[in-house]
Write a protein that binds this DNA or RNA. Structure first.
Lengths: 335, 335
DNA sequence: TAGAATTACTTAAACGATTAAGAAGGAGTC
DNA sequence: GACTCCTTCTTAATCGTTTAAGTAATTCTA
């Protein structure tokens, strides 16, 4: 079996309590005894049992992280931010990939509670978090993060989609564009509606007409972008000079449709996306886009959770929306 | 404070032992008492404390996972495979991102040991795993996985780079190519040398000359691929008709260099990569490549670890190399 | 109907730590 | 020399659970 403090105690001819004190550097232990205990513990290859310690200490330096899908461009980077701060504060992370499945999310929440995590970092699967609140019963703090955050969540860290979309729209306006179309799949999340609102705001401020094209054929990502752009090209007499796609994947689809129609980017039509997923930076794509502070979102979520766990800033909820930045590449140009 | 079995016992007028038995569905407890206990436990919102249970049961359904960098195209998918099987077998996952840093890896190993995980799934940072073996001292099973596996690792699951490279080379040969160059950064890992060996084997079998171009200027990924291709184009009188790049990022660099030189893919030169990272499938890139069974690697690693934890197949080490598959897209064509 | 067997519990020890309280011994104080 | 005060330990309780062993009451068996 694994070596325990009792084994050390026996070999050193002292009590287990003495060993515990020596190992934890407490004062009321003689120097000779301490050295002896430390030496023996090293000889025996002792590894403290956190489980047992946490049980008596009534605290667990573990936090649970729930992520909808770790195989996306966004979440791994957020996780790295969380990981970084967790390391710094001395937390260990329990990670669950909920596969965007509510049942999985439920299951993981209960696993985390059973494992007595000190707090929860949740990238929720959907907008409704009532089942989470119900299961956690305010026993431990929760910080929500990611794209599905909304105002029913007490504490959250996300990126400011309104501000980011304004950046994108303003960039196009500044390049001289007047007919700017925004392309969406649907408007069912706060993330999406915020992006649309940011776009509309800028259009309005500049005295331009908003033109939001919603393609709700049930298509997603690239397919949706391609379909939307194709419809616009075939169905209108006057096509936009710039397109703002809801996200990078859709932007790629838009570019494909434009290519297929013999139009050139950005000479004929400028295209901007949102998210800055890895391939956006490839020279042959060169997609201008909005970059969210993913790593920072993770860091801040973990920081905030740490504060909650320590009992700081009781009560006052904190909703953090981090600013995004504009990445200009080759897919946008002067008219 | 959180509700414990003692609280339930008090309210039900029975002993804590009775509660424990009722909750675990053990036989020697009366039906009426059981129902009462179950009802009260529900009323009080009891959540079992796994920590305490594991302490007495001397077993922990938690496994530690170490990953060099979760923000890559490969590891998140492997993690999802692990996650899937872990869920199935009832394990909870402790994940650490070691940031390809040996010191981090050390730190995480010791955290995992302190947390008494039942086993370890390690995607090692480097080829040398002596520090891991030393810290773990055979106290728990370890399965290694990912790109750095080698024969010093007792159990591992990886993908067969030799076989995958043969697939790539054979594809090019089949398309009629005779002058096929393989481009590498260096040969310092088993992964790389296996890929090169697979290529050489196919060339030899077909009576062709192997031509491995090593660009060891310290460049990585796309930059390295572009540099290598540029050197080949400027330094040789006879250029290859097909290029096999060590990985997709390098392949992208190769395609860029070809474009810059006014050569067309695949009409003038065919290009094939390795890894099938997400953007390889974009139509405007259409990179032919080798796809590793990433999800399956994760699943198998977790399966194998589960068997080890259960004490099956003692002794006999198991090294698993999964086959990869060829994805033909538009970057390769007949000569 | 006495003894055995069964049922339905309770008691108490254990898991591996921490820690409050107690105790032994030596040093310091007057 | 009697008192207190440190220093350096030990004892024992505790965290929340499980479980082997014990016990009382009931039922079965011959």
């Amino acid at each position: 079996m694994r070596v325990t403090i009792k084994d050390i105690a026996r070999k050193a001819g002292v009590s287990a309590a003495a060993v515990s004190k020596a190992l934890n550097g407490q004062p009321d232990i003689g120097e000779a005894t301490r050295d002896k205990i430390l030496r023996i513990s090293r000889e025996l290859g002792y590894t403290p049992n956190m489980i047992a310690r946490n049980l008596v200490k009534q605290g667990n330096k573990t936090v649970g992280v729930l992520i909808p899908d770790i195989s996306t461009p966004i979440y791994p980077v957020i996780y790295k931010g969380i990981n970084e701060k967790a390391m710094e504060y001395g937390y260990t992370l329990l990670l669950g990939d909920t596969k965007r499945d509510l049942e999985s999310e439920r299951k993981y929440i209960s696993i985390m509670m059973e494992n007595r995590v000190a707090g929860l970092l949740v990238g929720p699967v959907g907008n409704d978090i009532s089942h989470i609140k119900e299961a956690v019963k305010n026993q431990i703090p929760i910080i929500y993060f990611g794209g599905k955050v909304n105002d029913t969540m007490d504490d959250y860290v996300g990126s400011d989609n309104y501000q980011g979309a304004m950046l994108a729209a303003a960039h196009l306006v500044e390049l001289g564009h007047r007919r700017i179309t925004m392309i969406c799949d649907d408007l069912n999340t706060k993330t999406r509606s915020d992006r649309v609102k940011g776009y509309c705001r800028v259009m309005e401020e500049n005295g331009l007409n908003s033109d939001v094209f919603i393609d709700d054929e049930g298509l997603k990502g690239r397919d949706c972008g391609r379909d939307a752009m194709a419809r616009i090209l075939s169905g209108r007499t006057e096509i936009p000079t710039a397109v703002f796609a809801l996200n990078d994947l859709m932007a790629i689809g838009v570019m494909e449709a434009l290519n297929e129609a013999g139009l050139r980017v950005p000479d004929d039509v400028s295209v901007i996306g949102y998210d800055d997923i890895p391939f956006a930076s490839l020279p042959m794509i060169g997609l201008s886009t909005i970059r969210q502070p993913k790593f920072r979102i993770g860091e801040m979520a973990m920081e905030q959770l740490h504060h909650r766990i320590c009992g700081d800033q009781q009560g006052e909820e904190r909703k953090v929306m981090l600013h995004s930045e504009l990445k200009v590449r080759t897919s946008t140009g002067r008219i």
